[in-house]
């Protein structure tokens, strides 16, 4: 498990700049599928022909991650940036990033605490007031290393810690990519389309065209989702709990899961002795929204791996939850044609 997860999480793939992660995924799935299709948006679709195909099943995980885009190079060589996808700007100061294809190292800077007015110390700094320092002394020097429009990604390695837990960037949604790759190792009666989508974090864009192209009967989205089982958060706002197993969504802001699929997922989990939890709360949305309402509609559901500190360089996950997610998706695929 470890090697693949490391390859997936360390690859760069800010929304709109998924080239690096796309290459990793293509290399992984090519031996497992009948055909690899890269569409015009950049989605990777691994097609695995069924042994007795009556229906089309679309598995979906997004390749992209939140990050930054360089918007201006200052005379003093500092880079101004905008966020890509939703990022809490309070987590940014002093974070390390890598910029562009060359991975130019940079650090996010703000005014030192000594120089801040008392009122400034009380307020969170906005991203528009920060900059990325790449060690350049001038605009000319900086321009040799980066260009406007270059993407920057959190510089953060996968680290194993605790008893079977990991911290990394981009667990949302490389855990889904991981699960899809594992699922492609099985053989199924139906036509399986494993979609690794682009630009989910900026509005479910890749899934929209992928679903239109595939016209699936059944869509299952595998996500990394919020997990707030941490101090000072009231239990009714935890959303998910780490270690309690894959989270099955009843509804979120983008889709209301198909009830038969939800019942079937619960049945699969119970029969196979896989721990699961029902996601509490309806915040957030994911590719299922576009898949469910593509053309004349499809059945969809969502399974998620709980990830603390999502959309940060240091998301935390329990490997057992990922393992159980892989198991649950496999169980689902074994029997989903009866739906």
């Amino acid at each position: 498990m470890s090697d693949l997860l490391r390859r997936l999480t360390s690859a760069r793939g800010v929304s709109g700049d998924e080239g690096d992660i796309r290459k990793v995924i293509i290399d992984e799935i090519t031996p497992l599928v009948d055909e690899v299709h890269i569409d015009r948006m950049g989605n990777v679709i691994g097609y695995k022909k069924g042994t007795n195909p009556k229906r089309k099943v679309m598995l979906c995980a997004h390749m992209d991650e939140v990050g930054f885009i360089i918007t201006r190079i200052e005379d003093n060589g500092m880079l101004k940036f905008a966020t890509v996808g939703s990022i809490d700007s309070r987590i940014l100061p002093s974070k390390r990033v890598k910029i562009g294809d060359k991975g130019v190292p940079g650090v996010m800077g703000i005014k030192a605490i000594h120089l801040q007015e008392p009122s400034e110390r009380k307020n969170a700094v906005k991203a528009k007031h920060m900059y990325i320092d790449i060690g350049a002394r001038s605009k000319e020097e900086a321009e040799k290393l980066v260009s406007l429009g270059d993407y920057a990604v959190f510089d953060s390695d996968l680290v194993y810690f605790g008893d079977g837990r990991v911290k990394s960037k981009a667990l949302d949604d490389r855990v889904g990519c991981f699960t899809l790759i594992e699922s492609l190792k099985g053989n199924y009666p139906f036509d399986l389309y494993a979609c690794f989508t682009v630009q989910e974090e900026v509005g479910l864009r890749g899934a929209k065209v992928a679903a239109y192209h595939i016209q699936p009967d059944i869509g299952l989205v595998v996500e990394g989702t919020t997990c707030s089982d941490v101090p000072k958060v009231e239990p009714h706002r935890h959303t998910t709990r780490m270690g309690d197993g894959p989270a099955i969504s009843i509804a979120d802001l983008a889709s209301y899961s198909n009830k038969r699929m939800v019942s079937f997922l619960i049945e699969c989990a119970k029969n196979a002795g896989i721990p699961y939890q029902i996601k509490e709360g309806i915040t957030g949305g994911n590719d299922a929204g576009e898949i469910q309402r593509s053309r004349a509609g499809a059945m969809t559901a969502v399974i998620s791996v709980p990830c603390r500190y999502i959309h940060s360089p240091s998301s935390v996950m329990d490997l057992k939850d990922l393992d159980n997610t892989v198991r649950l998706v496999k169980e689902f695929l074994e029997g989903c044609e009866s739906l």
Binding site: H238, E280, G281
Partner: peptide, 17 residues
């Protein structure tokens, strides 16, 4: 109103549909 949480005392928290 969708039930999102049931607490130890049997009260239900909810989200709006």
């Amino acid at each position: 109103l969708m039930v999102t949480h049931i607490d130890d005392k049997g009260f239900l928290r909810f989200a709006n549909l």
